[in-house]
Amino acid sequence: MKNVLNKRNLITLVIIGVLFFVVQLLIKERIITAYMRSNIYWIGIYIILGLSLNMIIGITGQLSLGHAGFMSIGAFAAAVVLKTNPTLTGLFIGIGIGVLISLAVSFVVAVPTLRLKGDYLAIATLGVAEIIRIVLNNLSVTGGASGISNIKMLMSWPLLYTFVILTIFLTHNFKNSAIGRACISIKEDEIAAEAMGINTTKYKVIAFMFGAALAAMAGSLFSTTYYIVKPDSFGVNTSINILILVVFGGMGSLSGTIIATFIIGLVNIVLQPYAEIRMILYALILIIVMIFRPQGLLGSQELSTKLLPNFKWKRKEKSS
């Protein structure tokens, strides 16, 4: 236990707790309006999506353009369950079912496609997302092209926060483990990884399935936040939007993805009144960032309590 309850983890816990109660208080005092709240939900859900895609692209180096497909699986699973059982239990069952289906689909997809590299893999995953979308379009259980509407709205700050923290916890642990190191070695040099005794296929499949499962979870939260899901909400555009978060924040950097999502969320809010030129400005900001920081905001670095001054002070002195 002394490993778990050290000073650094305590600081992290305090930060997590304080952030929760501050926002909770602001919501209670109605300083955060309903409009702001819906933006916070958007940011939270996209943090989960960004982090999940980061496992596949940033950590393992496999370019996937079909992430929205796995998101839609979770969204529709939750929507269908919530229609008959509009309670929190129903939501959790929906998330569970979505995650399981997503794991199964991603496994079937991963085994043949992860033998492909770079652009070929990207196109294959793009195709998979399209297949999922078209299947959902033609399935009666998911309401066909019009999708499912009037889904029970269960989203709340505590619920969102729980899932975001859970995702950060899981992805952080994944990255900082032997499995994460194996995945990173695949991104760095696949041939060398194999020569080091890493079963590259196995770890690519694990990372892909892990990312797909988290995306399904985010999808479930999406459907209980926005009342309505339809297959067309989960097209290529959505996949690209998630990809932008990862690239913008820095490949492989979890804190980078989180910060990038915040910034893009804020940009969306600020640009809301200028609907006509919003997308132009949005694209412009991205282009400028990519010119001046091609490696993303944080590169592959992480922001963490490790960087606080009283920790590892000596090492810092040595390197400077």
């Binding site: 032997a178 499995i179 190191r181 194996a182 990884a193 890493i198």
Partner: peptide, 16 residues
């Protein structure tokens, strides 16, 4: 460490 990965005595759930 990557070369020593086979020394890890935990699986995916142990890591997560």
């Amino acid at each position: 460490k990557i070369a020593m990965n086979h020394e890890a005595r935990y699986g995916l759930f142990g890591a997560l």
